[in-house]
């Protein structure tokens, strides 16, 4: 048992940091807290199944727990949905004015599956093989889907850039 504890304590800080970011990118703060706690619980219970490369696996657990939490939440009163809309995931901090179109809006325009592949690639910094672990598909399938999603994103960025240059930036 102590060996298990020691292993978990060694792994957990990195997992906590990564999963917190993963959740902050995808849900509101309150749900993120709940799902983080649940994800850790699953990691603790399934520590023996956790592969050496534990982050993609932990993202996969978090993804599953988040989907569960959101399914439950959808069934709650409309009020909850309203609160969630008032308390959306944080936007990127206002830094230096980003060059080019607003990627948050562009991602929202894409199919959720494609947008998720791009997030896992760019934000979680995962390889196609690792994305496959998170999504429960083969690395090959993830690579093909990621490639297509990148092409779609390029087109959308070009289109948005073109619109901006012809219409001027919206306020």
């Amino acid at each position: 048992m102590d060996v298990r504890r020691a292993r978990f304590e060694a792994i957990a800080p990195v997992v906590i940091d990564a999963v917190r970011r993963y959740l902050a990118r995808r849900t509101d703060a309150a749900t993120a807290d709940d799902v983080l706690s649940e994800t850790l619980m699953v990691c603790w219970r399934r520590l023996d199944e956790m592969p050496a490369e534990h982050l993609p696996w932990a993202y996969g657990v978090a993804r599953y727990c988040l989907a569960n939490a959101e399914r439950g939440r959808r069934r709650q009163a409309r009020l909850t949905a309203r609160i969630a809309r008032l308390d959306p995931p944080p936007e990127a901090v206002a830094g230096p004015a980003p060059a080019g179109p607003d990627l948050t809006a562009v991602l929202a325009e894409m199919r959720p599956e494609d947008a998720e592949l791009l997030r896992l690639w760019a934000w979680e910094d995962l390889t196609p093989e690792q994305i496959g672990v998170v999504l429960g598909v083969s690395g090959n399938a993830a690579a093909i889907r990621l490639h297509r999603a990148k092409q779609k994103l390029r087109k959308l960025i070009e289109r948005a850039g073109h619109e901006e240059s012809t219409e001027g930036s919206r306020p």
Binding site: I16, D17, R20, R21, Y22, A24, R25, P89, P90, E91, A92, V93, G95, P98, G100, D102, L103, T104, L107, L118, R119, W121, A122, W123, K150, L153, R154, I157
Partner: peptide, 20 residues
């Protein structure tokens, strides 16, 4: 790909999250 990733990262709401 690098440009694309850089674009995406500028919209990353998780990057600014302080460590626990």
């Amino acid at each position: 790909d690098d440009d694309l990733r850089a674009h995406l990262r500028r919209a990353d709401p998780g990057a600014s999250l302080p460590q626990l």
